[in-house]
């Protein structure tokens, strides 16, 4: 029974095994990036970046069809361009970074939708927005695993300055010149993970697997390292159960994965031992 429900789909179907590997790679790479996005209070920035990569991916698609390489390079270029431009604008004008980023990503999103819808069909747009985790080819799998490896190595290197940049940015600037470098390295990781994630989950859902498990993890952990472990675990469990359930009930996989992550989030909001509603109420009663 359990075998039929959970294991059989992966054993019998190659596309399910590919989806499993791809989504686990995303869980290991994107969830830690999401933890730092959350701790830098930039959760919505991930959302903005996800929209910003769309025109790049669309141009890649127009040039060479559903090619992983072309769409990835285009997405990375568009994402980095928007990140850098909004950084430059906020440093040289009166606009704050969130305002300039919002302006750039909305323009970018509009451009992306125009390009996709004029050059392709609605099915293509659907693919780009929601991904196709059940149709990952070799190139996409290699991309996902490469980005995850690169992410984990980079995070290991910038872990200390990035933590400082989150907890006390002024102090980091006073003791070292690494602040800007750390910031841009981290933005690059965000873009890379969104671009690789959208192969599987689409631009809209890739940011979900980044932020939702991280938000849930915050309520279970009191250190960055344990937050990362919780977030990756929540993401991985969401992916696996999302794949299994969508296999049996023919739901759209990407959004289902995020819905399950959302269930973890809601449960954490209620039961999370560090700042969850019930634990807060207990503290309130005690004091």
């Amino acid at each position: 029974m359990i075998y039929d429900l959970i294991f059989a789909p992966f054993i019998e179907f190659g596309f399910m095994r590919r989806a499993l590997i791809g989504s686990l790679a995303i869980s290991l790479g994107a969830a830690p990036v999401g933890v730092f996005l959350l701790l830098r209070q930039m959760s919505l920035m991930g959302d903005a970046m996800a929209h910003a990569i769309l025109p790049g991916a669309a141009i890649g698609y127009v040039i060479s069809g559903l090619s992983v390489m072309a769409m990835t390079l285009g997405g990375i270029a568009a994402g980095l361009a928007v990140a850098l431009l909004s950084g430059v604008v906020s440093r040289s004008t009166a606009l704050r970074e969130d305002a300039s980023l919002a302006a750039f990503y909305l323009v970018s999103l509009a451009g992306g939708v125009v390009i996709v819808s004029s050059a392709g069909s609605m099915i293509d747009l659907f693919h780009v927005l929601f991904g196709s985790v059940l149709a990952l080819n070799n190139a996409a799998l290699v991309l996902l695993c490469t980005v995850t490896s690169l992410t984990l190595i980079t995070l290991a290197i910038v872990y200390r300055p990035l933590t400082l940049e989150c907890v006390d940015p002024q102090f980091l600037r006073s003791v070292s010149g690494l602040s800007a470098l750390t910031h841009y390295a981290f933005l690059a990781l965000v873009v890379l993970n969104l671009v690789s994630g959208f192969q599987a989950l689409g631009t809209l859902m890739a940011v979900g697997i980044m932020i939702v498990p991280a938000a849930a993890a915050r309520l279970w952990a009191q250190s960055v390292s344990s937050m990362i472990i919780f977030a990756s675990a929540f993401a991985a469990i969401s992916c696996i159960s999302g794949l299994v359930i969508s296999f049996h009930f023919a739901f759209e996989t990407g959004p289902l994965i995020i819905l399950i992550a959302g269930t973890f989030y809601l449960a954490s909001v209620l039961f999370g031992p560090f700042g969850g509603i019930i634990s807060n109420a207990k503290i309130g009663i005690q004091s």
Binding site: L39, Q41, T163, L164, C166, V167, D168, P169, Q170, F171, R218, A221, Q222, S223, V224, M227, F274
Partner: peptide
């Protein structure tokens, strides 16, 4: 006006170690 994010999950010891 310290820029410390007091909601950041970090222990006294780790913070001081900076």
């Amino acid at each position: 006006q310290s820029s410390v994010d007091r909601s950041f999950p970090i222990t006294v010891k780790d913070f001081v170690s900076m």
